[in-house]
Amino acid sequence: MTLKTQTKDRYGRTVAEVFTADGLNAGLTLVQQGNAFAYRQYLKQCDEWAYLDREKLAERYRLGVWRSASGIERPWGFRAARRGGQSQPAPRPQRPVNLTIINGAPASAPSSGRRWYCRNVGSWERSQQLLREGHTYLDGDGDGEACEALR
């Protein structure tokens, strides 16, 4: 793993992007899987739109924290509400979200470059693994489950 240091937070802690040995951005992967939020305060030092795109993708496909129809309150909004303040500063202008980006590649060609079809996957378990790897097109109805006919 390698760190790409971006800045320090108000407590002096290092804010960095984490990359795996094979060069994948661990933070982007976590956001894309719905296991983390794109923390807007520090996105200016990173590829801001990639993080926001991945978060929107996870929300669209109801992955991770987005499984609930209403989603989940972001941690900084929860803390601000407890303090009685605003949950976020005024919203920034939004760029149209590109829902085809997965791990830096088009949705039709995640990291492996191969496009899978349910009839060729072999098993429901394998289809779920492929979905987690970014082959979101295998989830035709957007419910977070790929190749349901294989079940």
Rank of each mutant, 00 (worst) to 15 (best):
V31N: 05
Q41D: 13
S123V: 00
L130G: 02
D53M: 04
P110T: 00
Q45N: 08
L28D: 03
W49P: 12
N98I: 01
N103H: 14
G27L: 03
G140R: 15
Y61C: 00
H135A: 09
C147N: 09
P110W: 06
T20E: 11
R60E: 12
D141N: 15
P89M: 09
L52D: 06
D141T: 04
E59V: 01
N25Q: 08
A21L: 12
S68C: 08
A36Q: 12
E133I: 00
R82I: 11
N103D: 13
R13P: 03
D141E: 07
R83W: 10
W116M: 08
V15S: 01
A105N: 15
W66R: 09
Q94D: 12
V97M: 07
E125S: 09
G144W: 07
A105D: 10
G122C: 00
D139N: 07
W76S: 14
K56G: 10
E17H: 01
R54D: 14
R83L: 13
R114C: 02
R60I: 00
G84M: 04
N98G: 04
F37V: 03
N98T: 03
E133V: 00
Y42D: 04
W49E: 14
D22P: 06
P89Q: 10
G140D: 11
T14M: 01
H135K: 08
F37N: 09
Q88C: 09
A81L: 10
W124D: 02
C118N: 05
A81R: 15
G142F: 12
G142P: 07
R83V: 07
R115V: 04
R40T: 13
A50S: 14
G85T: 13
T20D: 12
W66N: 13
A58G: 08
G64D: 05
P96H: 06
S127M: 02
R62Q: 14
L63Y: 11
F37K: 07
W76D: 15
N103C: 01
L63V: 05
S112E: 11
W124M: 01
D47Y: 06
G64T: 03
G113R: 08
V97T: 14
L63C: 05
G71S: 08
L99P: 05
D139A: 02
K56P: 05
L131N: 06
C118E: 06
A58I: 02
Q32D: 10
V31G: 03
G64H: 05
E125Y: 12
A107I: 10
G144Y: 08
S127N: 06
K44M: 10
L30F: 08
E125K: 12
G23Y: 04
R95G: 05
V121E: 01
P75A: 08
V15E: 02
Q128A: 01
P75F: 02
R95W: 09
A38I: 01
R119F: 07
S70R: 15
L30C: 06
R82Y: 09
A26C: 02
G71I: 05
A105L: 13
A149P: 13
P75T: 06
L57Y: 14
A69S: 15
